[in-house]
Design a protein around this nucleic acid. Structure first.
Lengths: 333, 333
DNA sequence: TAATATTATGTAAGCGCTTTCATGTATAGC
DNA sequence: GCTATACATGAAAGCGCTTACATAATATTA
């Protein structure tokens, strides 16, 4: 691989000048620039990004921590983030945190040691305090789907509460009054907030929430199935169930069918997230859309703007969910 | 951030010695090692990986090109690759090629300029010649799901032909004789091979393939839906359809139902890939398992073994698919 | 045309590490 | 006790760039 030195020799200029045309940050006379470009071309020269990083102490890499790499949710996120940075000539280093405190911390320090210029974090298990401390360190980061009051400018969140509200409101408007709820793990902020939204909708329709059956699931298919089984055992009169994410909705619907309920005639189900397979399910899942792609783009913009000084539009910190009506929720009989 | 220099001063040894304890590649007296480790600890020192890369001309990063970041298929792949490398202290840089020749090439040169030690490529659009030339360059790479004869040691492939065979054989064994086929884009090697397997099964059961209706789809849901519609129009007598991937199967099943077919009673469907949502579909999809995770691990092993000289087991170049029987394929009436 | 302001280019000192080669120090052999 | 050998450590030269700072070339003004 040719080095900048060889280019400078071939072009008959100094290293510095070559560097200038590479970085395009200092004026270079047009004739000189052309000479250099031609030399680079002739040698098939590409700058060594490692050397660039060391010299400039910018690595042009952004570290991303997500909970899982598989699964429908993060794929969309990563895809949009990668596209955004790729355009800007940055690259993305990915680590999975698996919703585990130790692994999340490891991922973060791993990415730090990789000299990332910034991090985009979708972390669930580390504490607010840990994040606040991290903010005092040198590496800038944005938080996705997590609100830490002291770090509010760097939080890109969904109004989960409103999402939970929309799901339940929809069922209530369809005439359901006996609505079960399958939650995510309550230690996760979004799970708690979605549930709060559910309660708010119930209250608004003057339904006593103590009548409403509740199950704390795990955000996975199995939890949804278990939850549905338990809910229907506890209260066979239930006519609708809100699931705090689509995966659980999938499990719940399967379980309900196995228990002899026809969907959506005897039982309506609403999910949350609008993952890409939610319309493969049958009945096609009515769910709350989580604009994760847009939020990923916004996180990218935050980084481009605050770390790389690009002039870009304002940052939208809070995104609003919206209800996607499909076929899994029907009017109460 | 503390540097190796500060550590060496605090420990009262030279830079070289600190480097030795970091890399653990040259004997260092135990007492010295401990002094150094304590100094590192006290300073909260982490080696600067960029500087390490520059000095050693190894970046400890592996570039991955996949077609898409979203979608169920690549998530599984990336997840297993990331896990494997993370354990080895390497990191993964990801780029999407979008099945487009230009973008695939761009992705590859992008990763090259990032000084990746190796690449794992799932590329579809670039030519065999391009890959053969690339192999003469300096960066080592493995190919996933692609067989290039001259590069056979670095190809990790699925026996797609056999997979196609299994899908059709299953339907034939269930008594179907009028079987439609919805293919992927025939310019993609795997699509072609899956179809060849289909033909082989047909031949084995003495079915004239010219009777068998065929549609060339796009590996996406829409293509599956269009394909099913066209197939049923062309030949309403069809009792079974093989789809060359699960996404098309999803579209096809929806379309079939909209055309009034009950599944699987009036129409059996078999997919290919066994993506994670295939059992969310209803009826749950009978499909051919693509062990993409295992193949990703094998690709990782190839890199660890051939690039980082780790002593690991043999490389398995060809993986075998297997049929996953669920509910979408039933006996012919 | 000389003096001054502007702009373009070159010089050289790092960035934080690895690694070769040289040197020093302990151990063994006689 | 002296040399031969092994082993542990240090000195210093890069890895390929960026970026002050210094200098040279050019444009501007009087």
């Amino acid at each position: 691989m040719a080095t900048i030195y060889e280019v400078s020799k071939l072009a008959g200029v100094s290293l510095a000048t070559v560097s200038r045309v590479i970085n395009n940050n200092t004026p270079v006379r047009e004739a000189t620039r052309i000479k250099v470009l031609e030399a680079m071309d002739k040698l098939g020269y590409h700058p060594n990004s490692v050397a660039q990083s060391l010299a400039s102490s910018r690595s042009n890499s952004i570290g991303i921590v997500v909970s899982e790499l598989n699964g429908p949710f993060f794929g969309t996120l990563l895809s949009d983030i990668e596209t955004a940075f790729r355009k800007a000539g940055k690259h993305v280093i990915i680590a999975a945190g698996h919703s585990d405190e130790k692994l999340e911390k490891e991922s973060i320090s791993f990415l730090q040691s990789r000299n990332c210029d910034a991090l985009i974090l979708h972390v669930e298990a580390v504490s607010d305090d840990y994040l606040t401390e991290l903010a005092d360190k040198d590496v800038p980061f944005v938080l996705l789907n997590r609100f830490v009051p002291s770090l509010y400018q760097r939080c890109i969140t969904l109004n989960n509460q409103h999402g939970g509200y929309l799901a339940t409101q929809h069922l209530l408007q369809l005439g359901h009054t006996n609505i079960g709820y399958i939650s995510g793990p309550m230690w996760k902020h979004d799970a708690e907030q979605r549930y709060n939204g559910h309660l708010r909708a119930l209250a608004e329709f003057a339904i006593n929430s103590s009548q409403s059956v509740f199950y704390e699931g795990d955000y996975h298919e199995k939890g949804g199935a278990d939850g549905m089984t338990q809910l229907l055992n506890t209260d066979p009169q239930i006519t609708a169930v809100v699931c705090a994410n689509d995966e659980m909705a999938a499990g719940a619907m399967t379980a309900a069918r196995e228990l002899g309920r026809s969907l959506p005639e005897q039982l309506s189900v609403v999910g949350f997230d609008n993952v890409n397979f939610s319309h493969y399910m049958c009945p096609k899942l009515t769910t709350v859309d989580y604009p994760i792609g847009g939020m990923g783009q916004m996180a990218s913009r935050w980084v481009l703007k605050n770390v790389y000084q690009q002039k870009l539009g304002d940052i939208q910190n809070v995104f609003e969910p919206r209800l996607i009506q499909r076929d899994s929720a029907a009017a109460a009989k």
